[in-house]
Simulated assay, not measured.
Amino acid sequence: MARRSRIQMDDEDTELNMTPMLDVVFILLIFFIVTSVFVKTPGIDPTKPTAVTSAEWKPSILIGVNAANEIWIDKRPYDVDEIRPLIMSMQAENPKAEAIINADKDAEVGVVMSVQEMMQDLGIVTRVGTNQ
């Protein structure tokens, strides 16, 4: 009779079960993806005037209008006629959306006003800021 030594181990006994660790990793990954907040920028950085007083306000829709009267949303330029469906889709994502329009000092008032009127038609609370 051949006896097996206690020190000798079968190959089957040396495997590690990685399934529970992978489950934990995927759960953590899903948690961080769901809880992450993405910062939206209009795509341009106009110079802003200094304010004597400031109020805390965090809009979810950022719109920039530069001196060439281009409307920038999410780092892409648009014409006035092209932004309505885009704003409506942003409002569908967040029904309580608030917006701010950052306009360059050399931007035409008519372009800024048409964007503001569109926001009012859609029922979005909007503030307009001009840059000196």
Results as ranks from 00 to 15, higher is better:
M1A: 11
M1Q: 12
R4Y: 12
R4E: 08
R6F: 10
M9Y: 02
M9H: 06
D10K: 06
D10V: 02
D10Y: 02
D11N: 14
D11H: 00
D11V: 07
E12D: 14
E12P: 00
T14R: 10
N17C: 09
M18A: 09
T19F: 01
T19N: 08
L22Y: 03
L22K: 10
L22F: 07
D23S: 14
V24W: 05
V25C: 11
L29D: 07
L29M: 08
I33N: 07
V34A: 12
F38M: 08
F38W: 06
V39C: 00
K40L: 03
K40F: 06
T41Y: 02
P42K: 04
I44Q: 05
P46R: 04
P46E: 07
P49G: 12
P49L: 03
V52H: 06
S54C: 05
E56F: 01
K58L: 05
P59A: 08
P59H: 05
S60H: 03
I61H: 09
L62T: 09
G64F: 10
V65C: 03
N69R: 04
I71A: 11
I71R: 14
R76Y: 07
P77L: 00
P77Y: 02
P77A: 04
Y78Q: 12
Y78F: 06
Y78M: 10
D79E: 14
D79F: 06
D79C: 00
D79N: 12
V80T: 11
R84L: 02
P85M: 02
I87Q: 05
M88I: 03
M90Q: 15
A92C: 00
E93W: 01
E93Q: 13
N94F: 02
K96T: 08
I100P: 00
I100C: 00
N102Q: 13
N102P: 00
N102D: 03
A103K: 13
K105I: 03
K105G: 15
G110F: 01
V112P: 06
Q116K: 13
Q116P: 01
E117P: 00
E117V: 11
M119S: 10
M119H: 09
G123C: 11
I124Q: 12
T126N: 12
T126Y: 03
R127H: 12
V128D: 03
G129S: 14
Q132N: 12
Q132D: 13
